[in-house]
């Protein structure tokens, strides 16, 4: 039996189809479930291994992004959710889903205090929606992220700025719960993928693979929302619950990448073939692998 993923939908969530595809592509089986149907039959959570709250605009971000949807889940499903995360399961919240998980207190759940709201994901510093590609550094033992060092995937949000008390940040750092952080190429403007005026040994193709990364340090647009400590995603203490603002499902295939035109041209010149999958797919294949290993262990 393959592990089953449940992807929530309804009230303005809108990334459920591409998120389902990502799970299915990774060999998992998945179902899209409207939140009202789950509320009618919450026991379904007992029969699934993965819960995904996808991106979207639940309740139009009114009263704060993710707030109203989280209130709805908390009132109708809290005990079931608590039981679900207590089992050996995986939970992911992407973008609006990340905001919902934070408002539910499923992350960071410091000291195992699930349900406590200690982190806010709020208005971008620019007070404007930002849809752009960013780079991430991964530093986490979360099963969602095993084997991943950096990722190039997009963000698309108006409220993606992680904020919290100093003390909370400190504990997150100590517990290694800051899973993903925005980074930038060292001394390299995003518009310049190569050094200008370097006439000695230029790469004939306008690409550059030998990149040195550094923290975005709050600098726009590398950190697209002004998030504290360049935080793009956090986990619960177990690492099994991941809340991430960027969209891995929009960067899971090479053809989705913002540099796809350039990559495919390069491949054409070299007579090479591009890999079909890109960075974002790793999260979903990791989820599949997690349950395969668990299955083998129990066998």
């Amino acid at each position: 039996m393959t592990a089953k993923a449940l992807i929530l939908a309804g009230y303005g969530l809108n990334c459920e189809e591409e998120t389902l595809h990502a799970f299915e592509r990774s060999g998992l089986s998945g179902t899209i479930r409207h939140i009202n149907d789950l509320i009618d039959n919450p026991k379904e959570l007992q029969n699934i291994q993965i819960l995904a709250v996808p991106g979207g605009f639940s309740y139009g971000d009114d009263t704060g992004s993710g707030n109203a949807f989280a209130q709805k889940m908390r009132l109708a499903l809290w005990d079931h959710l608590q039981n679900f995360v207590a089992r050996d399961t995986l939970t992911i919240g992407i973008c609006n889903g990340c905001q919902i998980l934070a408002n539910l207190g499923l992350v960071p759940a410091l000291g195992g205090q699930y349900g406590e709201r200690t982190v806010a994901v709020t208005y971008n510093e620019s007070a404007r929606y930002q849809c752009r590609w960013i780079d991430l550094k991964i530093n986490s033992a979360s099963p969602w992220l095993s084997g991943v060092q950096t990722m190039h995937i997009p963000v698309a949000h108006g409220e993606g700025r992680f904020m919290m008390e100093e003390a909370t940040l400190k504990r997150l750092q100590e517990n290694k719960q800051i899973a993903l952080q925005y980074i930038k190429k060292k001394e390299c403007h995003p518009c310049e993928s190569r050094d200008r005026g370097d006439t000695k040994q230029p790469d004939p193709v306008l690409q550059r693979d030998d990149i040195i990364w550094e923290h975005a340090n709050g600098e726009f647009p590398y950190n697209p929302n002004g998030a504290l400590a360049d935080i793009a995603g956090i986990t619960d203490p177990s690492g099994r619950v991941l809340a991430i603002m960027p969209h891995p499902e929009r960067g899971m295939y090479t053809w989705q990448r913002d540099d796809y035109m350039s990559l495919k041209d390069k491949a054409r010149r070299e007579g090479s073939t591009l890999p079909e999958e890109s960075d974002g797919m790793a999260l979903f294949t990791n989820a599949a692998r997690y349950f395969e290993i668990a299955k083998k262990k129990s066998a």
Partner: peptide
């Protein structure tokens, strides 16, 4: 362009 979500649905190529 940057404030319009142009890659939701995972379908953006160019």
């Amino acid at each position: 362009s940057t404030q319009y979500d142009h890659n939701v649905q995972g379908s953006a190529v160019m």
